[in-house]
Simulated assay, not measured.
Amino acid sequence: MPSATRQPQRDLPLDESRAVMRGNFGGKSGKEYHDGWEAMWQAGNFLPWDRMVPSPALADTLNNHSQVIGTSKLVLPDGTTRRKRALVPGCGRGVDVMLLQAYGYDVVGLEYSGTAVEACKTYARETENEELYKARDEKVGKGSKIYVQGDFYANDWLERAGLGEYGKEGVFELIYDYTFFCAMHPSMRPAWAKRMPTLLASDPQANLICLEFPTNKPAESGGPPFSSPPKAYMEHLSHPGENVPYNDKGEVRVQPLAESGPGALERVGHWQPANTHQIGKDAEGKVNDNISVWRHR
């Protein structure tokens, strides 16, 4: 029998779920906003993002789109190779960290919530020998993983993760963002877009992979999760740190004639995954989520 930590999270009716999230985060910002996530993890009775299994969209990307993202092997200028370093910010229970590890990446799972980090460690102890997390290629083997508590926008967690001197930039050859961009109030998105290019290696083998979700949620319904259509990622990652305009409904306004800003990332792939979590599908089971892949220009 699975332990209590392995039980899938309950889903509340949509209106009730939105009310709970607004109650936790409405009107909050800064540290108070971040602390709302810790409070939810401590309560443990409503974690709607916690599916207990890795993202099917990430698995599809790793399995079927290597022509875009490559593999876990990084080829260095001298011809030698090493494992790519991967980051999953807002990693939750660490399920996607463990999937990337199974594909051969050396992975850092980052969480603001210390309670979530402990949940990651518990889940890993219970599941790391299960078939789901075995090495996908015996010749490649499994990579490493480490879970760290920290603020995505600070640098101290890089040191705790053992990734060189404090403040080192361009550390990761793969970053996977799922329920991270959508968890932040749109006013926080410029900082997210400015931070991502500093963490992503400039190597052409390095990719930021975003699972765009929710793509069809009305922006005026608020969040988290906040409406995150493809144009929101495009506008922010094309103009890192800039105050991208939104209309009075909370929808991002496209600026087709605006030049890309300094540090902008380029979208090199965009598709609907073959599968995704049920919450990313419509009533008929059609996938609404998208995968976008970004690199330094």
Rank of each mutant, 00 (worst) to 15 (best):
residue 180 F to R: 02
residue 212 E to S: 06
residue 130 E to S: 02
residue 211 L to E: 03
residue 122 T to N: 12
residue 47 L to F: 07
residue 219 A to K: 07
residue 16 E to C: 00
residue 264 A to E: 05
residue 17 S to V: 01
residue 94 G to A: 09
residue 45 N to A: 08
residue 285 G to P: 00
residue 150 G to D: 09
residue 116 A to D: 01
residue 20 V to H: 03
residue 170 G to H: 04
residue 130 E to V: 00
residue 141 G to D: 11
residue 243 N to R: 06
residue 2 P to D: 14
residue 271 W to T: 13
residue 211 L to V: 09
residue 121 K to A: 11
residue 229 P to N: 14
residue 224 P to S: 15
residue 192 W to K: 02
residue 87 L to A: 07
residue 48 P to A: 15
residue 241 G to L: 10
residue 171 V to R: 13
residue 127 T to E: 14
residue 220 E to H: 13
residue 206 A to H: 03
residue 252 V to I: 09
residue 109 G to Y: 14
residue 140 V to R: 14
residue 68 V to D: 12
residue 184 M to I: 01
residue 165 E to V: 04
residue 38 E to F: 14
residue 291 I to R: 00
residue 17 S to I: 02
residue 193 A to Y: 04
residue 254 V to G: 05
residue 80 T to N: 13
residue 131 E to V: 03
residue 296 H to W: 08
residue 124 A to Y: 08
residue 197 P to M: 15
residue 212 E to N: 07
residue 157 W to D: 06
residue 52 M to P: 00
residue 153 Y to Q: 04
residue 123 Y to N: 04
residue 145 K to Q: 11
residue 268 V to I: 15
residue 83 R to I: 04
residue 240 P to Y: 15
residue 56 P to A: 15
residue 20 V to W: 01
residue 63 N to P: 00
residue 205 Q to D: 13
residue 142 K to F: 14
residue 76 L to R: 13
residue 233 Y to M: 05
residue 235 E to C: 08
residue 65 H to T: 06
residue 205 Q to P: 01
residue 172 F to D: 12
residue 1 M to T: 04
residue 243 N to W: 11
residue 75 V to F: 08
residue 280 G to W: 08
residue 187 S to E: 12
residue 97 V to Y: 07
residue 173 E to Q: 15
residue 139 K to P: 00
residue 249 K to C: 06
residue 294 W to T: 11
residue 283 A to G: 01
residue 147 Y to T: 01
residue 14 L to M: 10
residue 73 K to W: 11
residue 191 A to C: 03
residue 211 L to N: 06
residue 160 R to M: 13
residue 190 P to W: 15
residue 265 L to S: 03
residue 265 L to H: 06
residue 54 P to G: 12
residue 248 D to K: 11
residue 132 L to V: 02
residue 257 L to R: 12
residue 137 D to P: 00
residue 260 S to E: 14
residue 133 Y to C: 03
residue 81 T to V: 12
residue 123 Y to F: 14
residue 149 Q to N: 05
residue 8 P to C: 09
residue 141 G to T: 06
residue 294 W to Y: 02
residue 22 R to H: 11
residue 27 G to K: 07
residue 196 M to S: 01
residue 263 G to E: 09
residue 130 E to Y: 05
residue 260 S to C: 00
residue 105 Y to A: 07
residue 30 G to S: 06
residue 247 N to H: 02
residue 110 L to I: 06
residue 267 R to W: 03
residue 31 K to N: 08
residue 30 G to T: 04
residue 263 G to A: 10
residue 129 N to M: 05
residue 249 K to W: 05
residue 146 I to W: 10
residue 193 A to I: 04
residue 289 D to H: 14
residue 289 D to C: 10
residue 203 D to C: 06
residue 146 I to T: 07
residue 99 L to K: 04
residue 134 K to T: 02
residue 118 E to V: 04
residue 10 R to Q: 09
residue 287 V to Q: 04
residue 124 A to L: 13
residue 61 T to I: 12
residue 21 M to H: 08
residue 176 Y to E: 10
residue 18 R to I: 01
residue 61 T to W: 05
residue 237 L to W: 13
residue 187 S to Y: 00
residue 41 W to I: 01
residue 272 Q to K: 15
residue 152 F to G: 03
residue 41 W to T: 06
residue 30 G to P: 10
residue 138 E to Q: 14
residue 140 V to Y: 11
residue 261 G to S: 05
residue 53 V to L: 11
residue 82 R to I: 07
residue 51 R to T: 00
residue 89 P to F: 09
residue 235 E to N: 03
residue 143 G to V: 07
residue 256 P to C: 09
residue 76 L to W: 06
residue 30 G to K: 09
